[in-house]
Amino acid sequence: MTTVLAIVLSLVFLPLGLAKIAGVPVMRQAAAHLGMSTGLYRVVGALEVAGVAGLLLGLTWMPLGLTAATGLALLMAAAAVVHLRHGDPPPRAVPAAVMALISLAYAATATTAG
Rank of each mutant, 00 (worst) to 15 (best):
L57S: 14
A22L: 11
R42Y: 03
L47S: 12
V82H: 09
A68S: 12
H83C: 08
A30H: 10
G51A: 05
V43A: 09
V49I: 12
H33Q: 12
A80L: 10
T60K: 08
A78M: 08
W61T: 10
R28T: 13
Y41I: 04
L74G: 11
A19D: 08
D88V: 09
V43Y: 14
P90N: 04
P15W: 00
G39C: 06
P63V: 07
W61G: 00
L18I: 13
L14N: 01
M76N: 14
H33C: 09
L55Y: 04
P63G: 07
L57C: 08
D88T: 04
Q29R: 12
G58C: 03
V26C: 08
L34Q: 05
A19F: 01
A46Y: 12
G65N: 02
V44M: 15
G58M: 03
A69H: 02
G39A: 14
V81T: 14
P90S: 00
H83E: 09
T60I: 15
G71C: 07
L59Y: 03
A31N: 02
L59R: 03
V26F: 04
I21A: 01
A50E: 08
A46W: 12
L47W: 13
V82W: 07
A77V: 15
L72R: 01
P15V: 02
V44N: 08
P15T: 02
A69F: 14
L18Q: 02
M62P: 09
P91M: 11
V24M: 11
A73V: 08
M27Q: 07
V81I: 14
V26R: 05
G65E: 01
R85T: 09
P15D: 01
A68Q: 01
A77E: 03
G71D: 13
A19T: 06
